[in-house]
Design a binder for these strands. Structure first.
Lengths: 135, 135
DNA sequence: CTTGACTTGTGTGTTGCTCACAGGTTTATA
DNA sequence: TATAAACCTGTGAGCAACACACAAGTCAAG
């Protein structure tokens, strides 16, 4: 199975398959004639696993880690739980930051709608932004 | 004024100052002897503007654009409003995605807390992830 | 046997930094 | 005055997760 076929079997872009191979998440054999990547049915499963894990918030590095761990025969489940706990925390922080940003942006825009335009001088590029507070 | 002094004057890391210079957001003179960057008071203002704009959600590329526009003498204000309107929309999408992700992660973890560990076999790496749904 | 459609691999660009590194400069001490 | 330590500099590379460009290879139709 070559890149395109695998990518369709797992509903993933061909470029992603190539990328995963590049970083070692997939390790296809190579066609001796032309160097093409050759995948197996196991790779389809592996790729589906990768996407499912990704949709749960795992990074590719973490998935790599989980796969390595599983390959050693031990249960990756505790690791899987630990990682997602941290990811949940991190995501909460990011979420809060984004919410705050969204508010700042909306407030600024609402304020700006009322005001006219200004021409830049030596001191201000755009007073709309300049007056948006210090922090 | 050299990198460190500017960075302190605007409360920015020295590496960020170097980065902004690299991408052309700041354009210091160079010391003929040693090639060191030489900044002026105007650069302090410019750098503060950059950070304020960033805290409002503008990307560096957009800030670059705004500065260029202002340099041509025209008012950048309409541009500034347009950009932030788009940024607000984009951010809303990202926010929704992150919220959905957070829910998926929390649901998965809650589910997983009840279950034991499994050992990987040929078909599943970690059934916790595998049973997390198809989509 | 040539045209054209399709695919492949690899290289590069993306965002906003941060870190590593080798070297230059300033300051303190002997 | 020499020298060592502390600090600063510029540049190059790395990060995440792809998307895109591009030349070269493959395959079927005519």
């Amino acid at each position: 199975m070559m890149v395109k076929e695998l990518s369709q079997a797992a509903n993933v872009s061909a470029d992603s398959v190539r990328y995963y191979t590049r970083i070692g998440l997939l390790k296809p054999e190579r066609d001796r004639n032309n160097g093409y990547k050759l995948f197996t049915d196991t790779d389809v499963k592996r790729l589906r696993f990768i996407r499912r894990a990704q949709s749960l918030g795992y990074t590719l590095a973490e998935i790599q880690h989980i796969l390595d761990h599983a390959h050693s025969g031990k249960s990756p489940c505790p690791l899987v739980r630990d990682i997602i706990r941290k990811r949940i925390e991190d995501n909460r922080v990011k979420l809060d930051e984004l919410k705050a940003l969204q508010e700042r942006m909306e407030n600024a825009l609402q304020d700006w709608e009322q005001r006219g335009d200004g021409v830049p001088d030596g001191d201000t590029v755009c007073y709309l932004i300049d007056l948006a507070g210090e922090e």
